[in-house]
Design a protein around this nucleic acid. Structure first.
Lengths: 176, 176
DNA sequence: AATGCTTGTGCGTTATAACGTACGATGTTA
DNA sequence: TAACATCGTACGTTATAACGCACAAGCATT
C-alpha cells in the first residue's frame, strides 16, 4: 500500500456534498483552518481528528485513507461500469460480473427469463437492491439472493462509489 | 463505526510477532517512546506515523484502525477463516464463500466429486491457486475457473492479507 | 460604486505528537 | 552476588497539529 492521500479524499467528499469549510467545521467539530491545511496537504491529521471528520461526514474512516481505485477490463453499458468475471457457461448455466456504481447512481433492469436467480455480494460501499418489489439495503459484505424473472434494480444511495458482484443462474436451457 | 482502538491493535500485532518496542522502533522508524504511548492510549498518532508503523509491519493501514474482529458470521476450519455467502442450494447446485488468507498462509484441498467446478475471484491482495497441477498467480480483480475434482490449493505469497470469493458448482445431484 | 455575505487562506497562540535519552525493573550469565 | 543485557516507562526538548481570529478575494444585492 502506498501513502494515503487524505487531502484528495477530503476535498472530494466535501465538494461532493457542496460543503464549505465553515459548514464542514460545524459538522465535524474540527476547525476550518485545520481542514484547509489537511486539504492542502500541509498537515497530517491525527487519528482522533480524522475520526471526527469521518463521523461528521457519516462515513467510515477507510473512506479517507484508501484511494478510490478502479480496475482493469472494464466495460460500459447504459452508463454502468462492469466487468465480466466469468462468461456464461452452458454447462454450469451461470455467469458472473463485477458492477461499479457511482455515488447516487441507479439502474433498473427488466425481467429475465422464468426461473432465473440472481446473487448479489457487496464488496465496497453500500447498495440498495430492488427485489420482489422492495428496496433492500446491503452493506459491505452483505449478500442477497433473489428471483430475477421480474423487474429489479440497483442503486447506490451514498456519496461514495460502490462495487458488487452478481452471479446469474439460468436453470433452464436458455442462453442469457 | 466507532472510535478505532489503535492501542489494542498495535499491541496485538507487536506481541504477535514477539517484537520488543526497540525492535518495532527499528522496523518502523517511529521512536519506541511514541510507540509505547500509542499502545497505552496516551497519544493519538498522526496518519503519517501510523502509516510508518503499518509499513514497518508490512500490513495495510486498515489493520490498525478497524477492530480486530473483522466480520460477522465468520467461521474457521483448519485454520482458514471463511464466511458463507450463499449456502448450498439444491436447485441452483451452487454455494459461495468468502475466504480470508493471512500473509504466507496456504491450504491444500482434496479432490471433490466428479464434475465439480470452482470459481475464484480475488477481492484484495494476491493469491496463488493450485489448479490442474499448476500454481496460477492471481492479482486483485482476477478471476479463475478450474475443475475441482482433483487436488487443489490456495496460498497467499505476499506479506499482506488476501480475500477471495469462491463459488462451487455441483452439476451432479450430489450434496457437497 | 458601496454594502453585506460567504468563500478560503494567513497569522499568532496553545496543545500535544514525536523525539532522544535516562532510569528502574526484570531476567540471564559469570 | 555482581555484571550485564533487555524490557518498558518517565522526563525534558523540539516539531507540529489544532485552535481562534483576522483578512483579502469573489459574488450578490442595493
Amino acid at each position: 500500500m502506498t501513502q494515503p492521500e487524505i487531502a484528495k479524499n477530503l476535498k472530494a467528499h466535501r465538494t461532493n456534498l457542496s460543503w464549505s469549510l465553515t459548514k464542514t467545521a460545524a459538522e465535524t467539530g474540527v476547525s476550518k483552518a485545520m481542514l484547509g491545511q489537511i486539504e492542502r496537504g500541509e498537515s497530517s491529521p491525527t487519528i482522533a481528528t480524522l475520526w471526527k471528520i469521518a463521523t461528521g461526514f457519516h462515513l467510515p474512516l477507510t473512506a479517507f485513507i484508501q484511494a478510490p481505485s478502479p480496475n482493469e477490463f472494464m466495460h460500459f453499458k447504459n452508463g454502468i461500469r462492469f466487468k465480466t468475471l466469468f462468461a456464461f457457461d452452458p454447462i454450469l448455466k451461470t455467469e458472473m460480473f463485477a458492477h461499479y456504481l457511482e455515488p447516487h447512481q441507479s439502474q433498473l433492469s427488466a425481467a429475465h427469463d422464468n426461473g432465473v436467480t440472481e446473487d448479489i455480494v457487496v464488496l465496497t460501499g453500500e447498495v440498495e437492491i430492488l427485489a420482489a418489489g422492495k428496496w433492500v439495503y446491503l452493506q459491505t459484505g452483505d449478500a442477497l439472493r433473489f428471483p430475477a424473472d421480474q423487474p429489479h434494480g440497483y442503486r447506490n444511495p451514498t456519496s461514495l462509489p460502490a462495487i458488487f458482484h452478481n452471479i446469474m443462474h439460468y436453470p433452464l436451457l436458455k442462453t442469457p
